[in-house]
Amino acid sequence: MSREIDYGNLMHSAMRGLIRSVLEGVAKDGLPGNHHFFITFDTSHPDAELADWLSDRYPGEMTVVMQHWFDNLNVGEDGFAITLNFGDAPEPLYIPYDAIKTFVDPSVEFGLRFESPDDDDMDDVAEDGLDDDIEIEVQEEAAEKKEADVVSLDSFRK
């Protein structure tokens, strides 16, 4: 038994569980409102499944968008399957939760980023265009929303 609690892995597991719950809701009821997702994943993950031409074009990582058109969303224990449109060519994908590097819903300024021991520094800009500014903006917006003015009810009494 380990003498320390592995908070990093516990947090990653919880965040992946959150993604799974969100995707289960989308599979059941569709995307609500303006919600849409940018999901960056490791295309070289041993359990990731994608067309050869996609893995050739994106040998390290790839960002997919779930928004206007997607089909066959099947959410499982270890990952999810989905068919997405790539230039009018529907392609099935299987994305393991462990392969996910970022999950962003820009409609509500929410984002998750999974760090691995191979990642240099959280301040580095991701090559796929989704950078730490998204995560920082989400954190700043959340902090601003948490700050609320407290108004005493006595000021409204006569």
Score class of each variant (00 low, 15 high):
149 D>F: 01
130 L>G: 01
59 P>R: 06
152 S>T: 12
101 K>A: 08
112 L>Y: 09
107 S>F: 09
155 S>A: 12
98 D>A: 15
140 E>Y: 12
103 F>H: 05
102 T>K: 08
157 R>H: 08
111 G>T: 00
59 P>Q: 11
129 G>T: 02
54 L>G: 04
124 D>S: 10
108 V>Q: 13
137 E>A: 13
144 E>N: 10
144 E>Y: 04
99 A>C: 11
121 D>G: 01
119 D>G: 10
96 P>V: 06
102 T>S: 12
60 G>K: 06
155 S>E: 13
77 E>G: 01
116 S>Y: 12
147 E>L: 14
92 P>G: 05
149 D>G: 05
57 R>Q: 14
121 D>N: 13
150 V>A: 09
120 D>W: 00
115 E>S: 12
86 F>Q: 09
130 L>W: 07
121 D>Y: 01
115 E>T: 06
104 V>T: 03
83 T>G: 09
100 I>R: 02
153 L>F: 13
70 F>G: 02
98 D>L: 13
156 F>C: 08
114 F>A: 05
94 Y>W: 11
95 I>A: 04
138 V>N: 11
55 S>I: 03
61 E>L: 01
144 E>T: 01
130 L>D: 02
135 E>V: 04
119 D>W: 07
85 N>V: 13
78 D>E: 15
136 I>E: 14
119 D>T: 11
61 E>R: 05
77 E>P: 04
152 S>V: 10
73 L>T: 07
118 D>Q: 13
84 L>H: 05
69 W>E: 13
140 E>G: 07
146 K>F: 08
53 W>K: 14
139 Q>F: 06
99 A>K: 03
118 D>L: 07
96 P>N: 10
138 V>G: 07
117 P>R: 06
126 A>H: 07
106 P>H: 06
108 V>C: 12
60 G>T: 02
76 G>A: 13
56 D>N: 14
57 R>V: 02
72 N>A: 15
82 I>V: 15
111 G>P: 02
57 R>P: 02
52 D>R: 14
131 D>C: 03
124 D>G: 04
96 P>T: 08
83 T>S: 15
119 D>E: 14
137 E>F: 08
147 E>G: 06
130 L>I: 15
123 D>G: 03
104 V>R: 03
97 Y>Q: 02
51 A>L: 09
155 S>F: 08
107 S>N: 10
53 W>M: 10
75 V>A: 03
132 D>N: 11
95 I>H: 02
67 Q>I: 06
55 S>H: 03
55 S>L: 03
105 D>W: 00
102 T>Q: 07
129 G>Y: 08
54 L>S: 00
105 D>A: 07
54 L>V: 15
116 S>G: 11
121 D>M: 00
79 G>A: 07
116 S>A: 07
59 P>M: 06
147 E>R: 14
99 A>V: 06
74 N>H: 11
132 D>F: 12
61 E>N: 01
81 A>S: 15
90 P>F: 08
53 W>C: 11
104 V>L: 05
147 E>W: 07
123 D>P: 01
142 A>S: 13
95 I>Y: 03
103 F>C: 05
